[in-house]
Simulated assay, not measured.
Amino acid sequence: MNRAERVDRTAIAGELERTRVHLHRLLDEVSDASLRRRSAGTRWTNEQLLFHMVFGYMVVQALLPLVRVVSRLPAGVGRRFAQVLDAGTRPFHVVNYYGSCAAALVYNRNRMGAKADRVIGALSRRLQRESESTLRRGMPFPVRWDPFFTDYMTIGELYLYPTRHFDFHEQQLTLDRHEPTE
């Protein structure tokens, strides 16, 4: 996204909805055995990875207020904050892994879709209410935490993050799909 351009809310909302619908399709079309299978390139099972994909949307929901605050502080504060977070990358990854393992026990295939509906719906509604100036506000990010974090991200760019995260991790799923039974 070129930071000088207006944020295309319609396109972002469309991508949010695309992934929400796709998640439901995945959850409906796979067997329990397929969800218990290991994913490719991660230590998670498919079900844990699916929750982690939903968690990306939850992370954005939590980050939005933080970016609003930090973006109003002197630039040096934001840079230092990102450096401190980057220094904590190792514990972050441990918590990220085990947190997704544990959370998938609660937000399993039976609850995950509803959680995604609530979070993605809230993000979509919030996106439509954001002013253009707010969407341009941003802060430095801990680039070692996630390959889709850049050294500086605007709120508009942050709304794009969970879909990129979802699409990336979808390639690591090892699901056997079947037609849903009616």
Rank of each mutant, 00 (worst) to 15 (best):
R3Y: 11
A4H: 13
R9Y: 12
T10W: 09
G14M: 04
R20M: 08
H22T: 03
L23M: 11
R25I: 05
R37P: 06
R38S: 04
R38A: 06
A40W: 15
G41L: 14
L50H: 02
L50A: 02
F51Q: 01
H52F: 04
M53I: 03
V59K: 13
V59Y: 14
Q61K: 15
L64S: 14
S71H: 06
G76C: 01
V77H: 00
R80E: 00
D86M: 01
F92E: 09
H93K: 15
V94L: 14
G99V: 08
C101L: 03
Y107N: 06
Y107D: 02
R109A: 08
R111I: 07
R111V: 09
I120R: 04
A122Y: 03
L123K: 05
L123F: 04
S124Q: 09
R125K: 03
R126D: 14
R129H: 09
E132W: 10
E132C: 10
G138I: 07
F141G: 04
V143M: 12
R144T: 14
D146E: 08
F148Y: 08
M153T: 04
T154K: 06
L160H: 12
L160G: 11
L160N: 11
E170S: 03
L173A: 03
T174Y: 00
L175K: 01
H178S: 08
H178L: 08
H178G: 05
T181C: 12
